[in-house]
């Protein structure tokens, strides 16, 4: 249906010729943007409704005094459904560790929450299909669980800023929302999120469409194909300082993959962009000393590189 409409607009209304660079790029842009916005608005709404049942205060209660392993797994899973915004990372971190959530378990949550989120899933599902979307969730969770366990094992509690341990944390009552309030909240949330990410989607899809229409086939095969062993670490190195959300990156990598970038390299790049970023490092600097911050970034980056190699080898 969408495909037909996009075809009609490009080739009939605008009179562009199928198979030409411009025709293909415009068609691709129209089709992808409409599809993505439809998917985004419905799924963000549904996820927002689900999230109202998992406020961070409740998540904290579920995780406090949990042991390693079980705690890490649970934390990574809760990371998907608990709403998280990097601007409240600091109160969240303090709230977690102060109420007895082990440090490694807290990290599993902090890693999974921004990386495995509904926007990434929708974009992946819409552009790459559900298989890749599932693989992304699965490996994203593994990266979060594994990195958290290692950080826990390293016993780095003394590398958390000292004031964190001295803080008095209150226990806020969990305010229950009625179903009507939940729907209102979800409506507002969807609207404000779409308002925030739409430019990224348009620019991302636009760049993707340009690459799709103009870049020669297989031009990346030599540099980013699976035979180049440096492609994965390089993709992660480029991805870490980049700050964008999944909405902007995924359309671009989708087009890059068409031109020969290997799937493992694509996944690794996306994870690096969403899980680690400079602004996040600056925010977390408030609660972590340099050593722990470096260890956190290092372990997650290495785990992501492993995911990249794994998928280049098996897919």
């Amino acid at each position: 249906m969408l495909k037909q409409t996009a075809d009609y607009i490009t080739f009939t209304l605008m009179g562009l010729t199928p198979g030409t660079h411009t025709g293909e790029a415009v068609n691709f842009f129209l089709y992808d943007t409409t599809k993505i916005f439809l998917l985004l608005s419905t799924i963000i709404y549904v996820v927002a409704i689900i999230r109202t049942s998992f406020p961070p205060e409740k998540t904290r209660r579920m995780l406090s005094h949990k042991r390693e392993y079980v705690g890490n797994i649970l934390a990574a899973l809760l990371g998907i459904v608990t709403p998280f915004c990097s601007c409240s990372a600091v109160p969240l971190f303090i709230g977690f560790v102060e109420s007895g959530v082990p440090l490694g378990v807290t990290f599993s949550f902090l890693i999974s929450s921004p990386m495995v989120n509904e926007v990434a899933l929708i974009m992946l599902w819409g552009l790459f299909g559900w298989k890749i979307a599932l693989i992304y969730i699965g490996t994203g969770l593994l990266v979060a669980i594994f990195s958290g366990i290692i950080i826990g094992k390293l016993k780095m509690e003394k590398h958390v800023q000292d004031y964190v341990w001295e803080m008095q944390v209150g226990n806020a009552e969990i305010v229950q929302m009625s179903f009507r309030e939940k729907r209102e909240y979800a409506g507002e949330y969807t609207f404000s999120l779409l308002k925030k990410i739409w430019p990224y989607v348009v620019v991302g899809v636009g760049l993707g469409a340009f690459i799709h229409g103009y870049a020669p086939q297989d031009f990346l095969l030599k540099y980013a194909g699976r035979d180049n062993l440096f492609a994965v670490p390089l993709a992660v190195l480029i991805g870490v300082p980049l700050y964008s959300n999944a909405a902007g990156v995924i359309p671009i990598v989708h087009a890059l993959m068409e031109k020969g970038m290997a799937i493992g390299t694509v996944l690794a790049f996306m994870m690096a962009v969403t899980a680690l970023s400079l602004p996040e490092a600056i925010i977390l600097k408030n609660v972590l000393k340099n050593r722990l911050l470096a260890v956190f970034f290092g372990i997650v980056a290495v785990a992501i590189v492993c995911v990249g190699y794994l998928f280049n080898a098996i897919l």
């Binding site: 961070p56 205060e57 709403p83 409240s88 109160p91 102060e98 803080m167 944390v169 226990n171 806020a172």
Partner: peptide
């Protein structure tokens, strides 16, 4: 300031 926010047990702002 973060200590005052945390004192209320609030984790999302």
């Amino acid at each position: 300031d973060i200590p005052s926010i945390v004192k209320y047990g609030v984790m999302s702002t």
